[in-house]
Design a protein around this nucleic acid. Structure first.
Lengths: 149, 149
DNA sequence: TTATTATAGTTACATATGAAACTTATTTCA
DNA sequence: TGAAATAAGTTTCATATGTAACTATAATAA
C-alpha cells in the first residue's frame, strides 16, 4: 500500500469511539443527578425506576427489563434493600424467586429523582427538531439490531 | 398528576440507556476482535492506534487525542511497553514529558488488527444508506456538543 | 420415587477503573 | 536567586465489574 495514511484508523471519526465518548459523558452527568444527593448508584437507580413501572417482579425479570446481568441486579437490590428503598420477599409458589417492590421511602425517592432525570433527557433532546428526533430513534433502532446480530 | 403512568420513566425509550446499551454491545464485540488473539486491552488498542497515526507524542497528548484520562493512558502505555509494542523515552528538552513510538512489533500487530476493526465498523454501517450516514454523523455531533455543555 | 438437569439468586475471585496523593521536573515571579 | 505554583507521569486505594463457582429450589424423566 503506497499511502500509509489510508489504512490508519481515525479515532475521532470511528463510530464505536464516538458513541462511547457520547455515552460516557451522558452517563456521568446523569449519575451526578442522584449519586451524591441520594447516595444511589446508576445500577440501583435503574432497578428502582424499573420497579416503579413494574412492581412485584423478580430479580431475573428485572434483569431482562433493564438489560443488566444478574450479578449487577443482585447487588443493586441488596443496596436498595439495605437503604430501605426496596422490599424483598421470596415467592411462596417458587421459593427461589424473589418478589420485589418499592417501599414508601423508595417511592418517595423515585419521585424526587425522576423529574431530574427526565429533565436531563429533555435538555439533551431539546437541540433536535421533530425530524431529527425521528431520525435518531430510527438510527438507534437500526444500529442496535445490527450490533446484536 | 392524575395518571401515574405519565410520570414514570420508560427505560426502553430513555435515550441514555438506549445509547449505553448500543455502546456496550459494540464495545464488547470490538474488544473481542483483538483481546484474546492479541492479548491487548481496549485502552491499549486505542493508544496503539493513536500512536500509529500520531508518532512521537507524549502520554498527555495521547490522552487528549483519545479522550482517555491520564491514569488509563499511563497504564495502557505500561502494558504496551511490557509487551514490546511501544518504545518510550523521556524528552531531553523537558524530562517530564514522554516520547512514544510503536516498535516494529507494535506496527506489525497494528496492521493485523486495523483491518478487523474497520471491517467491523463497515459491517455495522452497512445497513445504513447514504442519507442515514449523514444523519448519523450530524446527530452524533449535535448530541455530543449538547452533552458537553 | 430418585437421579439428573435447570433455574434463581448469591458469593468469591480476579481485573478494571477513577480519584486523590505522590514524585520529579519545569515555570513563574517576588 | 529561591519559594510557590504548575505540569507530566506514576502509584495507591477504594470501588466497580464480570466470570465462574456455589447454594438452594424446582422441574424432568428414567
Amino acid at each position: 500500500m503506497a499511502d500509509g495514511k489510508n489504512d490508519k484508523l481515525v479515532l475521532e471519526r470511528f463510530l464505536p469511539y464516538r458513541l462511547s465518548y457520547l455515552t460516557n459523558i451522558i452517563s456521568r452527568k446523569l449519575a451526578r443527578l442522584y449519586s451524591e444527593q441520594f447516595d444511589i448508584t446508576p445500577h440501583e437507580w435503574k432497578v428502582l425506576a424499573n420497579l416503579s413501572r413494574h412492581p412485584n417482579i423478580s430479580a431475573a425479570k428485572t434483569g431482562e427489563k433493564t438489560a443488566m446481568d444478574k450479578v449487577a441486579v443482585s447487588r443493586a437490590i441488596k443496596g436498595l434493600c439495605d437503604k430501605g428503598l426496596v422490599h424483598k420477599v421470596f415467592s411462596s409458589e417458587d421459593r427461589r424467586r424473589s418478589v420485589l417492590n418499592l417501599t414508601k421511602k423508595g417511592r418517595d425517592i423515585y419521585h424526587q429523582i425522576e423529574p431530574l432525570v427526565t429533565a436531563y433527557e429533555d435538555r439533551l433532546l431539546s437541540i433536535l427538531d421533530k425530524d431529527e428526533l425521528v431520525q435518531l430513534d430510527h438510527l438507534l433502532t437500526k444500529l442496535t439490531d445490527q450490533a446484536k446480530s
